[in-house]
């Protein structure tokens, strides 16, 4: 579904990604782990072109994202993204947050969008918040709404950029529950996270990124149970 070939990204001379290859199959949940500054977030943001890769190719469902002729807005409508800092729109009610994109992109009519938004809100237990504003929600609630906002576009892939890193420890669980449910429902997911428990339990494949390169990849059992690289072992010893 997603194929990344030799992806490189420089920030003013600093080489953040030094050639990353990745293949994500439909329905797969891929989790990136690694120390901060290793380029995990940059890589994820390259997937929907929030960062423009310096070189390399990203192919999503047979279409090259990096080709200048590609209608990037159309492609992004098929890839949901969840951010570390939620990035809900504070000037709109929750319902408006959820329905703005589906309505404006003509993905759904207003009535359909509102129905879908309410259904999804119910699934994450926040249907009573539809008329409220983001400022009235807790961090965990905001992130659940942000996930629902992305889902309202019926994406084929969901990208999670450290979705629990800005949350109080108490609220991490409720967000991970939603993500777990999403993965179990067969959603294709690419996650960057520090939640090793989540990676171990939900991921189909774990990739350890270090210094702009994939150092090691494998099933959660392989990576957490029997890491091959010394650096992976060192990292896991520190975080587990």
């Amino acid at each position: 579904m997603i194929a990344v070939k030799d992806l490189k990204k420089n920030f003013e001379g600093l080489e953040v990604l030094k050639g990353v290859d990745l293949e994500v199959k439909k329905g797969e949940c891929v989790v990136f782990i690694g120390p901060s500054g290793s380029g995990k977030s940059t890589f994820l943001r390259c997937l929907n072109l929030l960062e423009v890769p310096t070189s390399g190719e990203i192919i999503f469902d047979g279409v090259s994202m990096t080709d200048p002729g590609t209608d990037i807005d159309k492609m992004r409508q098929r890839m949901g993204m969840v951010f570390q800092h939620f990035n809900l729109f504070p000037n709109m009610t929750i319902l408006k947050n959820l329905t703005l994109a589906p309505i404006r992109t003509k993905h759904l009519t207003k009535a359909q969008a509102e129905q879908k938004a309410m259904e999804l809100l119910k699934r994450v237990g926040l249907e009573d918040k539809a008329g409220g504003y983001p400022a009235q929600l807790s961090g965990g609630q905001k992130q659940r709404v942000a996930i629902v906002r992305a889902l309202c576009m019926d994406p084929e892939v969901m990208l999670f950029d450290e979705p629990t890193s800005a949350l109080d420890p108490e609220m991490v669980g409720e967000v991970l529950d939603v993500m777990r449910e999403l993965a179990n429902s067969g959603m294709t997911m690419v996650c960057v996270t520090h939640e090793m428990g989540f990676a171990r339990e939900v991921a189909d494949r774990v990739l350890f990124l270090e210094d702009g390169k994939i150092l090691e990849e494998g099933t959660p059992e392989q990576i957490f149970g029997n890491p091959q690289q010394a650096r992976t072992k060192e990292f896991l010893n520190k975080v587990l």
Partner: peptide, 29 residues
């Protein structure tokens, strides 16, 4: 916040819609 533009664009909204519905109303306030 730059994240607002990113969130709008990541949903597939174009630049003008993101400005009109998300950035400008917050800027006006």
């Amino acid at each position: 916040d730059q994240g607002q533009m990113e969130a709008g664009r990541s949903l597939g909204l174009n630049y003008i819609d993101t400005m009109r519905f998300i950035i400008v109303p917050q800027a006006v306030k």
